[in-house]
Amino acid sequence: MAQRGEAVFSLLLLAAAIFLSAEAYGIDGIGNWDSAGSIPLISTAAMVLTAGFVAVRSLVGQRTGDAGGLKTSGEPDSATDSGTGASAYGADTSAPLLSIDLIGVLMLLFAYVVAIGYTGFYPASLVFVAATIWFLQRGRPVQATAIALLCVVAIYAAFETFFQVRLP
């Protein structure tokens, strides 16, 4: 059976995707493929399709007691699981919704958004990516900083040279 709130959450995601798609259409409409709104329109169309697919599967799963062919937590499968909460994909679906990792990354994200206004995009992004990798790997600060530096240099190269867009 689908988990409580799954259908409501998937319908909220679908509504958000439709709203974002309408906003993307408002940028430049459906003009040329090289117009300013083409990439946002394509990506939000993909969001609407996938969110719609997830919503239909969760609604059908709630009605029939099935998860659309996927095994959910609480339904042991003797071939792969003995009631431990491991899903068909190997993930533990009985884990708490808010983990320490999620809370930590959300706090780093909040600090990142605040820092962009004070330091600018590139320094804030460097610190955010390095801190997030360091936090999630539980160490290795040199490796985290090196990866963050490569990411920021790649973003700089892509936007400043290829797209010729100056980021704040």
Rank of each mutant, 00 (worst) to 15 (best):
T64V: 02
L167G: 04
S78I: 14
F110P: 00
E23Q: 15
L150M: 12
V8K: 06
R63Y: 15
Y156T: 05
A22K: 12
A15L: 13
A7N: 05
L20F: 15
A88Q: 15
G83H: 08
D77M: 00
A45G: 14
I116E: 04
A7W: 07
M47T: 05
A146G: 07
Y122V: 05
L102C: 03
A46S: 14
F9S: 09
V129W: 01
S58Y: 06
I116G: 01
E23N: 08
A86I: 15
A146N: 04
F53L: 12
G104V: 08
T119S: 12
A79C: 09
I133G: 00
A45T: 15
S78T: 12
S73Y: 11
A154L: 12
L49D: 07
V60D: 09
A55G: 02
A91C: 03
A22W: 15
G37R: 02
S35V: 10
G117A: 11
A124K: 01
R57E: 09
T93R: 08
L97T: 14
I100W: 14
L106K: 04
L167Q: 04
I18H: 02
D81W: 04
F128C: 04
A91N: 14
M47Q: 08
S35H: 05
A7M: 11
L108W: 05
F19Y: 13
L126V: 00
T119C: 10
G69M: 09
A95H: 12
R4S: 09
S10D: 11
L13A: 12
S10K: 00
S43G: 06
V153D: 02
S87F: 06
L150S: 12
Y118F: 15
G61I: 02
V127C: 05
L12V: 14
K71L: 05
D92G: 05
V54F: 12
D92C: 08
P76L: 10
F9L: 13
I42H: 08
Y25V: 00
L106P: 00
T84I: 02
L136E: 09
L102P: 02
Q137T: 10
V152Y: 01
